[in-house]
Design a protein around this nucleic acid. Structure first.
Lengths: 107, 107
DNA sequence: CTTATTGTTCGATCAACATAAAACTATGAA
DNA sequence: TTCATAGTTTTATGTTGATCGAACAATAAG
């Protein structure tokens, strides 16, 4: 069975859960790393962490609308939903990504 | 004794604590309410909540650099440090404030 | 000095959440 | 089939942090 994930529509993306999702060191790292890579699977971003932890964070990011997961064979390819996010909350993600570049002292 | 508070310098303001501080429904409400008022004391922003809770949230917001507390007599007047924040992390606060206007469904 | 107002600090409680091991599912290759 | 790879789900644990009552501190006014 093809494992599919639910991805919220733009209207379903709300500010507070978005902020909560971003306000975690691991997830902020994932977001910014993913931004620099464009697309990546789960394993690529584990940096010594257990897979179950990564899977959890990816789930959180997916459910609040930050990333999209595309299943391709065994791998799950993740991308940021930047265009949608930029329309929904203009400037938010871009300023966070820029902020991380300014102060990457987070994770 | 004049009660003084420590306010972090711009360099001491870091992204992750800032995001954590904002990612709370009560504090997000305080921030946006304060933005519309310009300046306000603690009591003005209690909306049925106990003072001790408000005091806690104001402390968090102060310590991460989001607001400045000016003591005037018995009252503590709070203002957002928007100019500093805009220099430190351009676009961040403004996009959050705009985001709250778009989706105020938070608190 | 006494009282009222404003806000902080202390202490306890409770819930949310990050972490991680272990078992499981799903796909692809040998 | 059988094995390997990629990721999820389950379950448990521990920690952080929000909440709120009660006591305290500081200033102003009577």
């Amino acid at each position: 069975m093809a494992t599919l994930y639910y991805h919220p529509t733009p209207e379903e993306v709300t500010l507070l859960p978005l902020l909560r999702a971003v306000a975690d060191p691991v997830r902020l790292g994932i977001i910014c790393h993913l931004h620099s890579l464009g697309e990546a699977n789960c394993t690529t971003l584990l940096r010594g962490r257990p897979k179950s932890s990564m899977s959890h964070h990816f789930q959180v990011l997916r459910e609040v609308g930050i990333l999209h997961t595309r299943v391709e064979g065994v791998q799950h390819r993740n991308t940021l939903r930047l265009t949608m996010l930029e329309e929904r909350f203009p400037g938010l993600m871009s300023s966070i990504l820029r902020g991380y570049a300014i102060d990457p002292a987070s994770p």
